[in-house]
C-alpha cells in the first residue's frame, strides 16, 4: 500500500505546516515563512487528495449518451403557441406603446449618470497660467533667470498653484546661440529661459527626462522625444505635436512671469481641440 503511505505523508505535512503557520503568526509573523507554510498546508492537502483520486479511486471510464440539444418539433410549436396566449401580437398598438414606454423609462433612468462628472467646458483648453503669473518651483519659490544655470531643468508651476497637474511646465535654460527661436516667439525666451508644458502631447505622461547633450526632452512612458531648441517639436516616438510653449518674460522685480496661458490646449489630443471651446 505505497499509495496509502504517500497520501498519509502528504496529509501529515499539511497538518504540520498548519500548526507551524499558527506558531509563526502568533510569534510575530514573518512574510516568507507564512507564505511557505500556507503553501505547504494547502498544497500538502491538495497533493494527498489528488493521490487519493489517482491511486485509490480507480474507476472505469463511464459512457454517457448525449441527448440532442435541439427541442422536438412539437415542443417548439407548443412554446410558440404558449407565447401567443396573451394575444400580444394582436394588440399591436399596446405592445408598441409598452415597448416605447420601456425605452423612455430606461433613458430617464440613465440620465442620473450625467451626475458622475462635470461637462468638459473650458477645462481642457485652459490652465492656471495667467498674464503676469510668476513662475515658481515645486517649493513655491520665485525664480530669476540668473537662479538657474545653463542646461538646468526645473519643474515649474504658476504662483499659488504648485502641484496643479495641467499647469505643470518644464523650465530649461539654454545657450542663446544654439536656440532656433520660432517666428513670433522671439520675445518668449528671456535670457535663454524656455518653458514648455510638461504634459506629453501623446498620452499625457509628465515629460520628465532631459538629455542635455542633444537638448531633448524625453517622455518615459512611450519615448516621445521633443527638441527644446526647436520650439518643442516632436522628433521621435508616437507624439506628433510639439509641446506647447509658455511665453515668458521678466517682471519689474526681475522674476520670471508668464505673458499669458499656453497658446493652445496642453496634453493629449481630443477631437475638438482646434475649435473654440
Amino acid at each position: 500500500m505505497r499509495g496509502v503511505r504517500r497520501i498519509a505523508v502528504s496529509l501529515g505535512v499539511s497538518m504540520l505546516a498548519s500548526v507551524g503557520l499558527v506558531i509563526v503568526y502568533i510569534s510575530g509573523g514573518q512574510n516568507q515563512l507564512e507564505g511557505l507554510l500556507l503553501g505547504l498546508a494547502l498544497g500538502g492537502m491538495g497533493f494527498g487528495i489528488t493521490l487519493w483520486a489517482t491511486e485509490l479511486l480507480v474507476e472505469p471510464e463511464k459512457v454517457e449518451e448525449r441527448a440532442p440539444l435541439e427541442s422536438s418539433e412539437s415542443d417548439r410549436k407548443d412554446a410558440v403557441e404558449m407565447s401567443e396566449e396573451g394575444q400580444f401580437t394582436r394588440r399591436t398598438l399596446l405592445t408598441r406603446m409598452l415597448g416605447g414606454a420601456g425605452a423612455t423609462l430606461a433613458a430617464a433612468l440613465a440620465i442620473p449618470a450625467l451626475s458622475l462628472g462635470p461637462r468638459p467646458g473650458q477645462d481642457l483648453f485652459k490652465t492656471k497660467w495667467t498674464p503676469g503669473a510668476r513662475v515658481v518651483d515645486e517649493n513655491g519659490r520665485f525664480i530669476r533667470p540668473g537662479d538657474i544655470s545653463v542646461e538646468e531643468i526645473v519643474t515649474v508651476f504658476p504662483e499659488n498653484y504648485v502641484g496643479s497637474s495641467d499647469s505643470q511646465a518644464v523650465l530649461v535654460k539654454v545657450d542663446s546661440d544654439l536656440l532656433q527661436v520660432a517666428e513670433g516667439r522671439e520675445d518668449w525666451v528671456p535670457q535663454g529661459c524656455l518653458a514648455y508644458s510638461k504634459i506629453c502631447t501623446h498620452a499625457g505622461c509628465p515629460v520628465g527626462l532631459y538629455r542635455s547633450e542633444d537638448h531633448q526632452l524625453l517622455c518615459p512612458c512611450h519615448q516621445s522625444t521633443f527638441d527644446v531648441l526647436q520650439a518643442g517639436q516632436a522628433v521621435f516616438g508616437p507624439a506628433i505635436r510639439a509641446l506647447p510653449q509658455l511665453p515668458l518674460e521678466v517682471d519689474a522685480d526681475g522674476y520670471l512671469v508668464a505673458q499669458s496661458d499656453f497658446p493652445e490646449p496642453v496634453g493629449p489630443s481630443f477631437w475638438n481641440r482646434t475649435r473654440e471651446a
Partner: peptide
C-alpha cells in the same frame, strides 16, 4: 453522440478539490 470519462463523484470531485488546493498552495508560496 456520447461523453466518455470519469463521473463527478468521487473521481472528478477529488481531482478538482486536489487541484484547487494545489493551485492555492502554489499561489501562497
Amino acid at each position: 453522440r456520447n461523453v466518455v470519462g470519469k463521473p463527478l463523484w468521487p473521481s472528478q470531485t477529488f481531482r478538482s478539490l486536489g487541484l484547487m488546493l494545489i493551485v492555492s498552495g502554489l499561489l501562497a508560496m
